[in-house]
Each structure stands twice: as structure tokens, then as C-alpha cells.
């Protein structure tokens, strides 16, 4: 059967619910957004929080920690469609946890590789995020990334910027990680106005540019190598490239 769901994590858990409790056999899985024009001949899975919770609790209880976490990491890779692989992963996992390390099964290997790709991106962004200081002394960064790395970035910067407040703004997903004295949370960004920078900001970002240019050894220029390490798509918010 072809099925369509809303694309959310809860929605996907309801797909799992349908497989086990309604005995639906699934051939293809679509999300609403990718399916709008072909919406004939497909069974729609309604998202239901109670069902989703039930599945999540079962997964939590029955799956080993690393295997369980892989599911959530994969779901943060929101720009690729691997629902079928993930469903197979869950079905195999319920049969026997040891399948989930068997990288000779193509779907399992795909998810292992995707998880690695996800963490490579997380790691890259640990370095490539650039904060600007705002008028009120808070730090503010914009990001645009292939996968949803915001929760990991937030956690990382909470550790290192313990004495500062900061906001990391995911432009495409309209999400923000906000850390203040009182709380730490992810928020949906409804509307947004470009904030004003502090009076020192231009000074230090210019110093950074000066430093960046001075450390390069001209005799060894290799722009292609540089681009391998910092592909153009990451440079949008990196002040040294603007």
C-alpha cells in the first residue's frame, strides 16, 4: 500500500503504529508536501499523539540506547527521505537488536552512513557558526543547514558560552535556540527583524578578517583545497568570506 503522512516525527511514529496495530503492509511512504499532486490511491495516516507516544515508549524500552538514538538522529536529517529504510530498521530491531549493526543489509548501511554524515555536519557547524554581538551584549548567529543540527549546536554552545546569552537562528526552518539567564529552549520564529549590532562588532569582525588574510601563506595558495574544506554553501554567514 502507498501511504502518506504529515512528515513530522509524531506522524512517522503513527506509521509504525499502523504497521503493527492495523497490520498495514507498506510499499511506499510519502509526506504531504511531496505528494500533493499524486494524492490518489494512497492511504492517509492521521497523526495522533497518543499513538505516537505509545510507539515511542515501546521503542525506548525495547531498543538499545545507541539504536534508539539513531532513529532520532536520522529524523533530524529532514531534507532526505529515508522513511522506508527507517521503517525497515524498526521492524528488524523489534525482531532482534543485533540486525541493527549488520551493515551488509543495504537499508541499515544507508542509515549508518546518514548518521555519520549528520554528525560530520554537526562537527563542521561547531566551527563555522559565527556570532555577532548585539546592542544588549547578547550573541546572535544565523545558520542555514542541510539537516536540523540546531539542538546539537545549542548544547555545544551552552557549554562554551556559559556566561553569555545567545540565540542561534535557523533561517530556513524558522527555529531558534535561545539561551538566557533564566532558561534554555528551542522556539519557533514567527516574525523576525534584523537586530542591531553592538558598537564594537564591526571592529572585531574586521580584525578577524585581517587575521584571516595574514595567516595565509601566499606562496602556497590553493583555493581548490580551501573550497574542499569550506564549500561555498557554508560561507554565507562566515564573516571572513563576505
Amino acid at each position: 500500500m502507498r501511504i502518506v503522512y504529515d512528515g513530522s516525527f509524531e506522524g512517522f511514529l503513527c506509521v509504525v503504529y499502523a504497521v503493527y496495530y492495523k497490520k498495514i503492509r507498506i510499499q511506499e511512504i510519502f509526506t504531504h508536501s511531496s505528494f500533493s499532486l499524486l494524492s490518489f490511491d494512497a492511504y492517509e495516516i492521521q497523526t495522533d499523539t497518543i499513538q505516537a507516544k505509545k510507539v515511542l515508549n515501546t521503542l525506548h524500552a525495547r531498543f538499545e540506547k545507541t539504536h534508539y538514538e539513531r532513529i532520532t538522529h536520522i529524523f533530524l536529517c529532514d531534507s532526505v527521505h529515508v522513511e522506508k529504510e527507517l521503517l525497515e530498521y524498526i521492524i528488524l530491531g523489534f525482531k532482534d537488536q543485533k540486525y541493527l549493526e549488520n551493515i551488509t543489509i543495504p537499508s541499515i548501511f544507508r542509515l549508518h552512513e546518514l548518521q555519520k554524515e549528520f554528525f560530520r555536519l554537526v562537527h563542521k557547524m561547531y566551527g563555522f557558526v559565527r556570532f555577532v554581538e548585539l546592542e544588549d551584549g547578547n550573541l546572535y548567529a544565523k545558520i542555514e543547514t542541510k539537516f536540523n543540527v540546531l539542538p546539537f549546536l545549542g548544547k555545544h554552545f551552552c557549554k562554551r558560552l556559559a556566561s553569555n546569552n545567545f540565540i542561534i537562528h535557523d533561517i530556513k526552518r524558522k527555529l531558534a535556540f535561545v539561551k538566557s539567564e533564566k532558561s534554555t529552549q528551542m522556539r519557533v520564529v514567527q516574525s523576525f527583524e534584523e537586530p542591531t549590532h553592538s558598537s564594537d562588532e564591526a571592529h572585531f569582525s574586521n580584525l578577524w578578517k585581517v587575521f584571516f588574510q595574514s595567516v595565509a601563506i601566499k606562496e602556497r595558495e590553493n583555493k581548490k583545497l580551501q573550497q574542499n574544506f569550506v564549500p561555498l554553501l557554508y560561507r554565507k554567514y562566515m564573516s571572513e568570506f563576505s
Binding site: H123, G127, H156, A162, F211, F212, I217, E221, N222, L225
Partner: peptide, 27 residues
């Protein structure tokens, strides 16, 4: 106990035009 933390695997913050990783303020 103020600002900052280290990361076990090291982090590159940018790469110079000769393709080297910039991790530290090297002066």
C-alpha cells in the same frame, strides 16, 4: 569557570586560502 570549553576531537573554524585549518588565534 568562565567562558570556554575544549572539544576532544578539535574543531576547525575556517580554512585559509592555502587550504590550512584555522583553529587557534595564532600570533
Amino acid at each position: 569557570g568562565g567562558i570556554g570549553a575544549t572539544h576532544n576531537s578539535g574543531i576547525c573554524h575556517t580554512f585559509t586560502s592555502d587550504g590550512r585549518c584555522v583553529s587557534l588565534l595564532k600570533v
